[in-house]
Design a protein around this nucleic acid. Structure first.
Lengths: 142, 142
DNA sequence: GCTTGACTCTGTACTATCTACAGAGTTTAT
DNA sequence: ATAAACTCTGTAGATAGTACAGAGTCAAGC
């Protein structure tokens, strides 16, 4: 219905997306090509606005551009796709997030340990426990 | 003391570092240039071995290459650097790790919520709660 | 109507952190 | 001797953008 159009900068402001990034998303087929004015300017419609909002939200949840492209395809598919696909994508991503958290927690523990071993005195870094830990062949694998 | 030398592939195996990556680390001044044989081959010594071990361990703790370069400089500096510097670098990195964990936990919560809202049935993705969430203007900011 | 500033266009280069490949030369094993 | 495995250089690709140069366009104020 709405015939509202937006120039690139306006779309950028409305979505908090860098305006150069909008061009980039078009290049990698995340955002469809908008119509062009006779001046060559891109003119976006409300569908672009909604899609870019979707992209920004998915990004904030850590989805990769490839995953976002898949999610957009599912949402656009006319009955071709199922909720099972959307859920599978989400669950698989969630698993990755959990794995990453688990990895980072191990890193946090190790960093915290080696940091506590160093008094941080304003003296020569010779024999600094942190550096020695990093040189240590036997530092626990993270 | 030890006059052991290693070719690139040997160093790679000993450190579990990809051999192309060793070349890359030399390019970005993370690993000093080794001596070259008359055939142009790189011949590494035990100092390189130890440094690359340091790099790999630091990487496994999530330090960026720039931070690793600083840590190496501190460890190499002849009394020029202090333990305070090493500790500050570590603490600042630890803070970043904690922040990242906190961000990921929020993402995990949101993903888990929207995933639970979807039954994942093998039916049309129309009205899929996950996709609707991602299109929703009001989805809680992560 | 003109000027000025803001915007947009294209293409390309840069960030970080590697990884991989082509085509040539070298070493090693059988 | 020959073939496999290794190394050399330089360059391109992946991921996810960001930034800039140089040209053209639009909008507001005078």
């Amino acid at each position: 219905m709405s015939l509202t159009v937006y120039k690139r900068g306006q779309l950028a402001k409305l979505t908090s997306c860098n305006s150069e990034t909008i061009r980039y998303y078009e290049k990698i087929n995340l955002l469809p090509e908008p119509t062009r004015g006779s001046n060559g300017y891109r003119y976006y419609n409300n569908d672009h606005l909604q899609r870019l909002g979707f992209i920004m939200k998915s990004k904030s949840l850590g989805f990769s551009n490839d995953k976002i492209r898949e999610l957009l395809e599912i949402s656009r598919g006319i009955g071709q796709h199922t909720r099972a696909e959307a859920k599978a994508l989400t669950e698989s991503h969630l698993e990755q997030v959990r794995q990453r958290i688990s990895d980072l927690k191990k890193i946090e523990t190790t960093l915290s340990q080696i940091s506590h071993q160093c008094d941080g005195a304003n003296e020569s870094a010779d024999h600094c426990p942190i550096l020695l830990s990093l040189f240590d062949q036997n530092l626990a694998k993270v």
